[in-house]
Amino acid sequence: MLASFCADEYGLERCVADRVVDQALALVHVMGSTGEGATMAPSELVDPGWHTLILHTGWYAEWCEEQFGYFLHHQPNSKVRTRGLMTDVVARVRAAGFEVDDRLWGTAADCNPPACCGDGPCC
């Protein structure tokens, strides 16, 4: 349901949307469970996944309550998405035990965004 919406809403291939939503869930889980969300931000490619979660408010609210016991609000800020910030966020997500798709964070060595850091379908 979430990945289908993400694909349709943001014009992504379904297989890419699956990965985007997966990475957004990992990011939001780390933000909510550590309380360090103010120092974290999604990459440009992961951001549609977080927006997808938030647009499904009922599901998202229930998931937040189950995961951390409170609703994690989306509080956009004016941070610039630097490679350093993305590297820090990726390190935190990875340290929490999640698998990270470096191509979606702009931290892969061979990354060439915005085309999902790859040249073929489903990069």
Rank of each mutant, 00 (worst) to 15 (best):
H29F: 15
P76N: 05
D102A: 14
C111I: 06
D102P: 09
A108T: 04
F5T: 15
G106K: 01
A3K: 08
R94F: 07
A17W: 07
A3P: 05
C6G: 06
D101G: 00
Q67R: 15
P42K: 07
A17Q: 05
G32C: 13
T34V: 12
W63G: 01
R83M: 04
A3Y: 06
P114S: 12
F5H: 10
R81S: 06
L85G: 02
V80S: 11
R81G: 04
Y60E: 01
T52R: 01
G118N: 06
D22T: 09
Y10T: 03
G11T: 03
P76G: 06
D119C: 08
I54Q: 00
C123G: 11
G120K: 11
K79G: 04
C123E: 12
V89G: 04
A96Q: 08
H56C: 08
E9I: 13
A96D: 14
A96P: 04
H51C: 10
R14S: 11
F98S: 03
G84M: 06
G32Y: 08
M31D: 10
C6P: 00
M86I: 06
D22W: 03
A3V: 11
T39H: 14
E13V: 05
Q23V: 09
C111P: 04
E36H: 15
A108D: 13
S43G: 11
N77Y: 07
W105N: 02
V21D: 03
K79H: 12
Q75S: 13
A96V: 05
E62P: 06
E65S: 12
A96K: 08
A3W: 00
S43W: 04
L85C: 06
A26D: 07
L72D: 04
T39F: 15
L55F: 13
A24D: 01
L72A: 13
H29I: 05
G97P: 14
D8F: 02
E62T: 15
G106F: 03
T52M: 05
F71R: 13
E9H: 10
C123P: 09
A61F: 07
A3L: 12
E62L: 11
F71S: 06
V16C: 00
Q75I: 14
I54R: 02
S33Y: 03
D88P: 01
I54L: 08
C116S: 12
G32R: 09
E44G: 12
C111T: 03
A3M: 12
D102S: 11
C15G: 01
L12C: 09
T82Q: 07
R83V: 07
L45P: 00
R94P: 08
L12A: 10
R92F: 14
D88F: 15
D88V: 03
N112K: 14
Q23M: 10
A108C: 08
L72G: 07
D101A: 03
E36L: 15
L85I: 02
V100W: 02
E36M: 15
D8T: 14
R94V: 07
P48L: 01
Y70D: 13
L53Y: 05
